[in-house]
Simulated scan of single mutants.
Amino acid sequence: MSWYRYDSENNLILNLHVQPGAKNTITAGLHGDALKIKLAAAPLEGKANAALVRFLAKHFDVPIGQVILKQGEQSRRKVVVIQCPGYGPDVLFDELQD
């Protein structure tokens, strides 16, 4: 299984493994069948989830409202839907090559 797929409405669905409390918010590569993202936010009171949504909205060039956390609100494993993304999933790997 891939870490991303598109649904019938061309929305991007991401399988993520999130590590809160990191030094910086970055994409850290693949973690099994998920993409690992390190977040510079604590896993308290939804701060890590909010940081994840902002990070994804910025990278996919969409408003925050178009990034929907479908599963894993209190888990490291998350399923996120990006509605009508401005870029494909490879945009998350661009910073790995910098």
Rank of each mutant, 00 (worst) to 15 (best):
V81F: 01
A40I: 02
I68H: 11
L44K: 07
R77A: 13
G86R: 10
I13P: 07
T27W: 07
Q97H: 13
R77G: 00
F55G: 05
I37H: 11
F55D: 01
A42G: 08
R76H: 03
G88I: 00
Q19P: 02
P89R: 13
K47N: 10
V53K: 15
F60R: 06
V62P: 05
L35P: 06
Y6S: 10
S2C: 03
F55H: 12
K47I: 06
L44I: 08
Y87I: 00
L14D: 10
V79D: 01
L12N: 12
L44P: 01
D94V: 11
V62H: 09
K47R: 15
Q71N: 01
L35G: 10
S75I: 01
R5F: 01
I37S: 11
A42D: 12
G46F: 07
A42C: 01
E95Q: 15
Q74F: 07
A51W: 06
A22Q: 02
H31R: 12
L52T: 04
T25A: 05
R5T: 13
Y4T: 04
D98Q: 13
K70C: 11
V18W: 03
A42I: 04
E95W: 09
M1N: 10
V67S: 05
D94Y: 08
E73N: 08
L52W: 02
S8N: 11
V53W: 02
Q71S: 03
A41Q: 08
Y6T: 10
E73S: 08
P20R: 02
A42S: 14
E95V: 15
N11H: 14
H17G: 01
L92S: 09
K23T: 12
S2Y: 03
L12T: 12
L14F: 06
V91R: 15
A28Y: 10
A51D: 07
L30M: 14
G29I: 05
A51Q: 15
I64S: 13
G29C: 08
V81H: 03
D7I: 04
N10Q: 06
Y87L: 13
I13A: 08
A22C: 03
L96Y: 00
V81S: 12
M1L: 09
T25N: 09
F60Q: 12
Q19Y: 05
Q66T: 02
